[in-house]
Simulated assay, not measured.
Amino acid sequence: MEIKTGPVWPCSLEDPTDRRSGKPRQSGLSMVIDKGLGPAAFSDLLLTAGEYIDLLKFGFGTSPLYKDEILRGKIAMAKQHKVATFPGGTLLEAAVRLEVVSEFFDMVGDLGFDGVEVSDGTIELSRRQRDSLITEATQRGLRVFTEYGKKQSGSRIVLEDLRRTVELDKGRGAELVTVEARESGVGVGLFDDSGNCREDELRRLRQSLPELDILLWEAPRKDQQAALLRILGTEVNLGNVAPSDVMSLETLRRGLRSDTFALHRLVSDYMI
């Protein structure tokens, strides 16, 4: 272990909120979307910011497009930094449509992915199909992250549907339920056609949903992340974070950026 003998940053400057914990975290999770980083860029990301990444999604259907040794290498590197990996839900949706679900799960396990995302953002899944996919994944020892919402522009959150989805998915073994916002964060779910957060709607959801810890909110933009942190608290789970924004998000979480600067003084006002 390296022993530092010179000046060190005051602890209060490292985390003014005094709420961030180390891995493995149970809340305040950050999920990064990887849309095709090369091995060198991926290694740099983990070396620089791996401590602040909990989950990493190989976006959309990119996983089969990699050379085998590159994909395996990236997954292995992530494991070294205690970052859990999973392929994007669109790939499983494609497997359902093409009737190759068992082959999909075989490959996910062989490659060393930690989990899968079960979604129906593009296709329609019956409740029975959704349950079956969650069950198969858990029986194979995979972590399951489900997703609520459609990818079509104009899709909105329906409280009772979300509540029911969380209840049933959790009962089947899902670890987190992701609220859809796509990688753009525009015109879907919580965000309007300009990408602005519907903050009044978010406050109503906070009051009405009993288990916010199980939700992971896709929020690719800084203003969206800041709004969720201010309203739901520093330990909200956030996803679809761009690799280049990991450190930036961590400063938002800790009140080290002007957008959330008040969190280190007023954090108790925003606790769930």
Rank of each mutant, 00 (worst) to 15 (best):
I3F: 10
P10W: 03
L13T: 09
L13S: 14
P16S: 01
T17I: 08
S21H: 11
P24F: 01
P24Y: 01
P24N: 06
Q26M: 14
Q26H: 12
Q26I: 12
L29R: 11
S30N: 11
M31C: 14
G38T: 03
P39S: 12
P39D: 09
A41G: 06
S43T: 15
L45E: 03
L47H: 15
A49Q: 07
E51I: 11
E51V: 13
D54P: 02
S63R: 09
L65F: 12
Y66D: 07
E69L: 10
I70V: 13
L71V: 10
K74I: 12
M77T: 05
M77W: 00
K79P: 09
Q80A: 13
H81F: 15
H81V: 05
K82I: 06
P87K: 01
G89K: 07
G89N: 07
L92E: 04
A94E: 12
L98S: 08
E99D: 15
V101I: 13
V101F: 03
V101P: 06
V101K: 03
V101L: 00
S102Q: 14
F104Q: 05
F105Q: 09
V108M: 00
G109M: 09
D114A: 15
G115L: 03
G115K: 05
G115A: 07
V116C: 04
E117F: 08
S126A: 09
I134M: 07
A137K: 01
T138Q: 12
T138S: 15
K150D: 02
S155Q: 08
L159A: 06
L159R: 11
E160P: 08
R164P: 13
T165V: 13
T165E: 14
K170W: 07
G171P: 05
E175C: 12
V179L: 14
R182Q: 10
V186G: 06
V188L: 02
V188F: 01
G189H: 07
D193P: 07
S194M: 13
S194N: 14
R198E: 12
E199R: 13
D200I: 07
L202Q: 00
L202W: 01
S208E: 15
S208W: 04
L209K: 01
D213K: 10
D213L: 02
W217M: 05
E218M: 04
E218F: 02
E218V: 04
P220T: 04
R221N: 12
R221Q: 14
A227M: 00
L228K: 03
L228Q: 02
L229V: 01
R230E: 09
G233C: 07
E235Y: 02
N237K: 08
L238M: 09
N240K: 05
D245W: 01
S248E: 15
E250W: 02
G255Q: 03
R257C: 11
S258Y: 06
S258Q: 09
D259P: 10
T260N: 00
F261T: 06
F261W: 13
L266I: 10
Y270H: 09
